[in-house]
């Protein structure tokens, strides 16, 4: 696998007078490979959103470079719009950006801006809707008549329709009910698999991160606190707590069980794994679990 996106020594300073001047993110270096799912976790105000806005050229780094497929995205500032169709960014509460008369037209807005038209455009929209399970009955509905969860899915589909190689989602499941969350997570997984696309997710939800993410970035006060495989990061529970974050609930349950003398491994981060592990203990050792 090759590096799709590489960030080198990125620093962003918000301009202002000398008193308000501060580094929103400082000296960040990491890279993501094709097809990978990368999670970004961190406190509110730790610089997560500022960081991802650099990846598609909405913000220009004060220092450092962003490389997409090994080319500096700011090499030709006039062509920065092309980057935005290759690195798709879904903002927080994307349903507030819907504006067209029909669901179909709203999803087609992104691809249309890329210069698609006619049959090509229609095929593109229909394909993404099929993949994401958005029924064709919805096409002629007004996006404003949909429920909150449906609006969110249409808005995310609008970015996915541009078929970006890297898809970034800022808190995609915030404020949704359990069904809505499951739907959105399924969408992200199907997109990742269907196009072997790289996905970067910002989230506060450790449980979802444990299920979805291959790798994790932990941000703290604008700096990169940790970067590694998801289980490696979650094994450093103390460090996470120092930053004010935590490990998934199920991992905390397992830690509590261990304290009580039940022999369980440390690296259980998802409910599925926990069930498997506990069942095997019950069968094997006969201890109550």
């Amino acid at each position: 696998m090759s590096k799709v996106l590489e960030i080198r020594n990125l620093t962003h300073t918000y301009s202002g007078n000398s008193t308000t001047k501060r580094d929103a993110v400082s000296n960040i270096t990491f890279s993501v490979d094709g097809g990978e799912i990368l999670g970004i976790i961190g406190h509110t105000g730790s610089g997560k959103s500022t960081l991802v806005q650099h990846l598609n050229g909405l913000l220009k780094p004060t220092k450092g470079t962003v490389l997409f497929e090994e080319k500096d995205i700011w090499l030709e500032p006039k062509k920065i719009r092309h980057i935005r169709s290759k690195v798709g960014l879904v903002f927080q509460y994307p349903e507030y950006q819907l504006f067209e008369e029909t669901v179909y037209m709203d999803i087609a807005y992104g691809p249309k801006n890329m210069g698609l038209s006619g049959d090509e455009l229609r095929v593109r929209v229909e394909e993404i809707c099929k993949l994401l399970g958005i029924d064709e009955d919805y096409f002629e509905k007004s996006p404003f008549d949909l429920s909150g969860g449906e609006k969110r899915r249409v808005a995310i589909a609008g970015v996915m329709a541009m078929r970006p190689k890297v898809l970034i989602l800022d808190e995609p499941i915030a404020g949704l009910d359990p069904k809505g969350r499951a739907d959105v997570i399924k969408m992200i997984e199907s997109y990742n698999k269907a196009y072997n696309a790289t996905v970067i997710i910002i989230s506060h939800n450790m449980e979802d991160m444990a299920v979805l993410a291959d790798k994790l970035i932990v941000m703290n006060k604008g700096a990169l606190a940790m970067f590694g495989k998801t289980d490696e990061v979650f094994l450093k529970a103390d460090l996470l707590r120092q930053i004010g974050l935590n490990v998934p609930i199920v991992t905390r349950v397992m830690a509590a069980l261990k304290k009580k003398g039940i022999d369980v491994p440390d690296n259980i981060f998802t409910v599925d794994d926990a069930v498997k592990c506990l069942c095997s203990i019950k069968k094997g050792g006969g201890k109550d679990a």
Binding site: L58, F91, G110, N113
Partner: peptide
């Protein structure tokens, strides 16, 4: 925020003649 979101979807706010620019403001 909305401007950034539409720019991320490829909206072109900086180029074009006056009519195109006005049309680009609708989103």
């Amino acid at each position: 925020k909305i401007m950034n979101a539409q720019k991320a979807r490829g909206a072109n706010l900086e180029e074009g003649n006056i009519f195109e620019r006005i049309k680009a403001l609708i989103p």
